[in-house]
């Protein structure tokens, strides 16, 4: 792989002049603040369609903050602010006329801790997004089967769709959450350390799921696990903080990041020398 799609600020701007519309998700000079606290500085990244990008870096460097900027979850924190722009298929998701709920339908999210809705059955959990967003769908059974299959959970739960989501194991719950996100047919799926609360077996299962998902949608995954990053991602982005705001050190094809990174700090980090 000689040419990577992930580019930095300057080159993104250069390309902007040439190619008018980038298909996929793209950030340009994104910053984030919590009140006065500048948490993230100047991140420009491109996430092409149908790829998996891993975000790596030590804790507190702003990975979660960054990922929550990508589907407008950042704004739920009362003092939050941002700068720069996030483009989905070329249009700014922070433009005043955009409806954040619609953005979140297109850019789904899976959280660190598995969190099926406690008062709902497995089936209801999968269909929750459709109900919440008032989407008109008639083939509910089909959606349930299809999403659970894609999330790699169908075989395990097909006989107990009416059981409570809480009755599943941790790994199964997380796959249920993935199925729930898939039901609203997002173009991009954000995952913030989706396996950090799970056992190794469930982790492998979810990694397989992620690879299968990438055949249809864009996946952006935050992970602390270097092996996981190297196993599932096509591209990697390395974040760091020196006590100040977090910033992007380097972004490239995963193989290059792990074998021959440009920045020595990336090399140190992927080899486990710090973080």
């Amino acid at each position: 792989m000689t040419q990577t799609q992930i580019t930095t600020n300057q080159s993104a701007n250069q390309q902007n002049g040439e190619t008018s519309k980038f298909i996929g998700l793209e950030t340009q000079g994104v910053h984030a603040w919590f009140g006065k606290h500048h948490a993230l500085s100047n991140v420009s990244l491109r996430f092409p369609e149908r790829t998996v990008t891993g975000l790596i870096g030590p804790s507190g460097c702003g990975k979660s903050t960054f990922i929550r900027l990508l589907n407008r979850m950042h704004e739920f924190i009362p003092s939050a602010a941002m700068a720069g722009s996030v483009l989905l298929n070329g249009s700014d998701i922070y433009a005043p006329e955009e409806d954040p709920a619609m953005i979140r339908l297109k850019v789904g999210m899976v959280f660190q801790k598995p969190n099926p809705f406690p008062a709902m059955t497995i089936r209801e959990n999968v269909l929750a997004g459709i109900k919440l967003a008032h989407l008109k769908r008639s083939n509910h059974d089909e959606i349930v089967e299809q999403c659970l299959t894609r999330a790699g959970l169908w075989k395990e739960v097909k006989d107990r769709l009416q059981a409570s989501g809480g009755s599943l194991s941790g790994g199964q719950q997380q796959r249920l959450c993935i199925a729930r996100s898939l039901a609203v047919e997002p173009q991009v799926l954000l995952m913030d350390e989706p396996c950090s609360a799970l056992d190794p077996g469930s982790t492998l299962r979810i990694e397989e799921t992620i690879k299968e998902l990438a055949e249809k949608i864009t996946v952006i995954i935050v992970t602390h696990n270097m092996q996981q990053a190297s196993r599932v991602s096509d591209h990697c982005a390395f974040f760091l903080t020196d006590g100040g705001p977090g910033y992007l050190v380097e972004a490239d094809a995963t193989r290059k990041m792990f074998t021959n990174p440009t920045d020595s700090r990336t090399a140190d980090y992927v080899q486990g020398k710090f973080g």
Binding site: P100, F111, K113, N115, F117, L132
Partner: peptide, 12 residues
């Protein structure tokens, strides 16, 4: 995070 999930699913 349950509430966030609702919003992440496009809920109002």
């Amino acid at each position: 995070d349950l509430i966030d999930t609702c919003f992440a699913l496009g809920g109002s």
